[in-house]
Each structure stands twice: as C-alpha cells, then as structure tokens.
Design a protein around this nucleic acid. Structure first.
Length: 299
DNA sequence: CTAGGATCCTGTCAGC
DNA sequence: TGCTGACAGGATCCTA
C-alpha cells in the first residue's frame, strides 16, 4: 500500500527516533520477512548502530555502522511502529498503530537502545498483515545493485527529471498510461492511489495509450504526481497522527486528501460529475468520466 | 513490446 | 450465523 509519500513520512519519523540507536537484538517472528544472502544474519545486525535512514522510491534504507544496510519494502500492508518513551508509527494504516504490540501482524522486532544505558530501551516493530513486505540485509555498497533500485526511474520532483520520465515512458508507446506510471522503472514512487489522483489532476483517462499523449500532457502528469505527492508528505502521510483523530475516533487521511481515489459515487470536486470506478490493468481505478474523456484516437 | 493472469498472504466486506 | 467470492495503496514471473 504505502506509496512514496507514506514511505517518506516513515523515513522522516524514523530518522528522528532511531538514528544513533544501537540494535540490541532482532526477533524474527516470520522467517520470510527478513533475509540475508549469507549466514549469521542476527550476528551482523546485533550491536550495529543506525547511522542514517534513506529512501528511494517506495524503498526505505536503514544504514548501519558496520557496512550493512537494512533495505525495507512495505508493499501493500507493511508498517513500522516505534515504541519507546513515545509511540510513533507510519505505513499502512491499521489498528496495530495503536494496539498492544507485538500482535498477529508483527513479523520482525528490533530492540533498540544504547548498551551503556538501560533507560533508552525501545522497540521497532515491522508489522505486515499480508507478508508481502520484506526486509533485506545487504552491504551498503550494494544497495543500488538490487534490481528494483538499479532499474528505478527518477523521483518525481525535479524539472530535469521530466525529460527522463518522458524518455522512459516513450519506450512504452502502446501501453496504457496508468500501468505505465505504476511501473517503477519509468517513474519512482507512484502507486494505485497517486496514479488515479495524478491522472485526474492532469485530466487524462487511465486507458489512454502513451503514444496518443503529447509531451505536454506527459509533463502535466509528471508535474501533477510530484505536486500531489509533495502535498501528501506535507499533510503528514499515513501515520498514527492522521489515523487517530483528535477526538480519538478513526480517521482516514485519504478521506480528506484524495479527490477521486475511493470516491466512487461521489461528485467530482472539479465538475460535480459522479466519480466512477473501473478496472484498468487489473487495478481498481477511479475517474471522473467528464474530466477524463477516453482518447478518441483508438487504433 | 503488450495484456492478462497467477503468485506471494491475510483480512474484510458484500451477498446469499 | 456461516459460507463464498471479490477485492486490496505492490511487484514479479509466466504465457499468449
């Protein structure tokens, strides 16, 4: 689930909480959730100090001071929850943000602290209902060689990267625009929500073939994706803070944030037409049928 | 090259 | 209440 804004929100939260901490121990509740192409995984992790928390696309990277890094992908239902003197969590929003941990979704537990001080003890929980998410321990120097990262397209921010994005996507001329922007090798960080939001913003129908879009339209999609994702980060992404409202009831940040995603049956915020839900490339897709007209140039 | 389906899993919800 | 099927904020692999 978590897309770039959620992963960036997690990164910022964790950076404040865990950099400088030592990993005292690792508890593996689900073997497949944590892997290492070698032996002595726990021994490599335990005792290491966390020196940085980075992000590339939807991938989170925790650098350790022993030349290793923990590379994390939350996939659909992953989340990270820090429990120390304070509680913090981000990623896929579920009740595990607020409930007692570990719970049945907990896959890995990192016990953090400083060897010299008993007081700083804290735990970092990697929770993941569907077990699609993963953590890999790799040499820091080889992080960029992981296929997903090696092939990854540009982050959706800079003006220069617009050209890179257009160049990448033109290689997929006959593809529909929605699956094309979901492809991490074309542009990094877009998932199902931001794909729909970006296409609505740029007034492009998700089934439009790439070859039927002008450079200007592609640039508009790229720009919309960057702006919407930046706005989402500023808004606070998906965290405990946005999950629990001030009055203690559950709130969805999507409810407030999204214009079309999950809004089928409701009026388009731009023109009032009822938003429809369709299936495009196997994914639930939300459009305004008036703002996002299908391409008339059909081959 | 592209689409479409299956796969990795668990939980939830609609419908009968 | 219990069952069933569809679906889910991801990515990869396989087939046609």
């Amino acid at each position: 689930m978590p897309e770039l804004p959620e992963v960036e929100t997690v990164r910022r939260g964790l950076e404040k909480l865990i950099v400088g901490q030592q990993i005292l121990s690792v508890k593996i509740l689900n073997e497949k959730s944590l892997s290492f192409a070698g032996s002595g995984l726990a021994k490599k992790v335990e005792g290491a100090k966390i020196i940085a928390v980075r992000r590339r696309g939807k991938v989170l990277i925790i650098d350790l001071d022993n030349d290793f890094s923990l590379v994390i992908h939350l996939k659909m239902t992953g989340q990270l929850v820090f429990q120390g003197s304070e509680r913090w969590g981000g990623g896929h929003p579920t009740d595990s943000f607020v409930g007692t941990l570990p719970d049945k979704s907990t896959r890995i537990i990192f016990e953090l602290g400083k060897k010299s001080s008993e007081k700083s003890f804290a735990r970092l929980f990697f929770n993941d209902q569907r077990k699609f998410g993963w953590i890999k321990l790799v040499l820091t120097a080889t992080v960029n060689e992981l296929p997903l990262i090696a092939k990854m397209g540009p982050e959706p921010w800079t003006e220069e990267a617009t050209e890179k994005f257009i160049k990448n996507i033109r290689h997929r001329a006959n593809s529909m625009i929605k699956p094309a922007i979901l492809d991490q090798s074309i542009i990094a960080g877009i998932g199902n929500i931001y794909a729909d939001e970006s296409l609505w913003s740029a007034k492009v129908h998700p089934e439009t073939r790439v070859k039927n879009l002008t450079d200007k339209q592609l640039a508009a999609i790229y720009r919309a994706a960057g702006e919407i994702m930046q706005k989402s980060i500023d808004f606070g992404g998906s965290t405990i803070q946005t999950y629990v409202k001030a009055d203690g009831t559950k709130g969805s940040y999507l409810e407030k944030f999204a214009k079309v995603f999950g809004k089928d049956g409701q009026p388009c915020p731009r023109c009032g037409t009822i938003i429809q839900k369709l299936r495009v490339a196997g994914r639930g897709t939300h459009i305004c049928p008036k703002c996002q007209k299908p391409s008339r140039i059909v081959e």
